[in-house]
């Protein structure tokens, strides 16, 4: 059951990612990205991270991608145009991507014995467990990250403010 869901949503995730690259209209790409993020949420859920899965849906599939779609709609972005730059990007990008994939795949394959492993559906991290880890064991890094995000928000406000 878990394996079937893993295969279905893993394939959906990969399909969405490919479609994201192949579509020529930005809104279709944005919608594919939503599919990718939602299928990732299901994969998190299969690994027992229920809070993370729902946070992924609410924050990424919901809030952030709505902003993407919003901006695309607002700018009324048209079809992607082919220029000389895009041909150069094809020529350099595809071999580059394959090389990166090869290096990463090779590294994971050779080092796979030293990684831990997780079985699907064997473990459930409840929201309570997550809160214990975040607010007891890792309180300092958590607060530092919050302050970092706060600084970023303030920076965005300063940049967006009108000059008087």
């Amino acid at each position: 059951m878990h394996l079937a869901l893993f295969i279905i949503f893993g394939l959906l995730c990969l399909g969405g990612a490919l479609n994201l690259l192949l579509q020529r209209h930005p809104i279709n790409s944005a919608l594919s990205l939503i599919v990718v993020m939602s299928s990732l949420a299901v994969l998190y859920l299969l690994l027992g991270a229920e809070f993370l899965a729902l946070a992924q849906i609410i924050v990424y599939s919901g809030a952030i991608m709505v902003l993407f779609v919003f901006v695309i709609m607002l700018l009324n972005a048209g079809l992607e145009e082919k220029t000389h730059g895009s041909r150069a990007a094809y020529l350099a990008g595809i071999p580059g991507m394959l090389a990166l994939l090869g290096v990463l795949g090779g590294t994971f394959f050779t080092l796979r014995s030293s990684f831990g492993s997780a079985r699907l559906g064997a473990y459930l991290a409840t929201t309570h467990d997550l809160a214990q880890v975040l607010f007891r064991n890792l309180l300092l890094p958590f607060e530092v990250t919050s302050i970092l995000i706060l600084v970023a928000i303030l920076g965005a406000v300063v940049l967006a403010r009108k000059e008087h």
């Binding site: 939503i34 729902l54 849906i57 599939s61 809030a63 709505v66």
Partner: peptide, 16 residues
Amino acid sequence: NVGLLVILGVTSIGVY
């Protein structure tokens, strides 16, 4: 377990 978040998540997808 996370029923409340499911409702919030579904609402946020409904915007599309």
